[in-house]
C-alpha cells in the first residue's frame, strides 16, 4: 500500500487507494479534503494563516491557509474530484508553547480560523475535526474509505 508523507508546508493527493500521512502537527493544521464518489483525497500541512508577501505566490502554496486551501482543491480536481462533493477534515492548531501568541490569539487558533474561512469561501463542509488543545498530532487519511485517524502522544487514536 502506498503511503505518502506530507511535510510542513507541503500537500499531496491520491486516487483509489493508499494513505496520506502527516506527522508532528503542532500549531500547524493538517487539512484533508475528500471526494467519496471519485475516491480522491488530498492533504495539506498548513504552517501559517497568511502568505506574508501577497505580491508573490509562495514557493510552497500549501504553506499558508490563504493560498493552500485553493491549491489543494485544484490538486484533487486534477485527479478527478469535484469541488461540490468535497468534504474537509481538520487536525492540529494546538498551542504547544503557552508563551507563543500574537494579538492575544495563539498561532494555532489563528490557523484554525483562517482554514475555516477558506473552506467556507469554497463551500466545503467540515465533517470532522480534532483541533486546538496543547498536544501535537499525527494525521492519516485512508483514500479508500475517507476515514481520518488522529493520534496524540499518550492518547488513544481518534477517528474523525
Amino acid at each position: 500500500m502506498q503511503e505518502l508523507f506530507v511535510n510542513m508546508g507541503e500537500m499531496a493527493a491520491l486516487k483509489s487507494s493508499g494513505v496520506l500521512t502527516t506527522v508532528g502537527l503542532g500549531s500547524c493544521i493538517g487539512l484533508t479534503i475528500y471526494d467519496p464518489v471519485a475516491q480522491v483525497g488530498g492533504m495539506a500541512h498548513i504552517f501559517l494563516a497568511r502568505n506574508p508577501n501577497s505580491e508573490k505566490a509562495p514557493e510552497l502554496p500549501g504553506k499558508y491557509a490563504d493560498t493552500g486551501v485553493k491549491a489543494l482543491i485544484d490538486l484533487v480536481e486534477s485527479l478527478g474530484a469535484r469541488q461540490r462533493r468535497l468534504e474537509a477534515k481538520l487536525a492540529g492548531g494546538a498551542n504547544i508553547f503557552n508563551n507563543l501568541s500574537a494579538n492575544g490569539l495563539s498561532i494555532g487558533q489563528q490557523n484554525i480560523i483562517a482554514v475555516r474561512e477558506q473552506l467556507e469561501k469554497y463551500q466545503i463542509p467540515i465533517v470532522g475535526e480534532q483541533v486546538a488543545g496543547n498536544k501535537g498530532r499525527k494525521m492519516r487519511l485512508s483514500i479508500e474509505t475517507g476515514i481520518v485517524i488522529v493520534t496524540s502522544v499518550g492518547q488513544q487514536p481518534v477517528e474523525i
Binding site: M8, V23, G24, L25, G26, S27, C28, F47, L48, P52, N53, P58, E59, A94, I96, F97, N98, N99, L100, I107, G108, N111, N134, K135, G136, R137, K138, V153
Partner: peptide, 26 residues
C-alpha cells in the same frame, strides 16, 4: 528573554510550533 515555556511532545510538533512562532519564510 521572554518567560519560558516547556513542551514534551512529538519532535515535529515542537519544531513546527517554534518555526511558526518565528514565522519563517523560504
Amino acid at each position: 528573554p521572554s518567560v519560558p515555556a516547556v513542551a514534551i511532545d512529538m519532535a515535529g510538533a515542537v519544531w513546527d510550533s517554534i518555526l511558526a512562532g518565528a514565522a519563517v519564510a523560504d
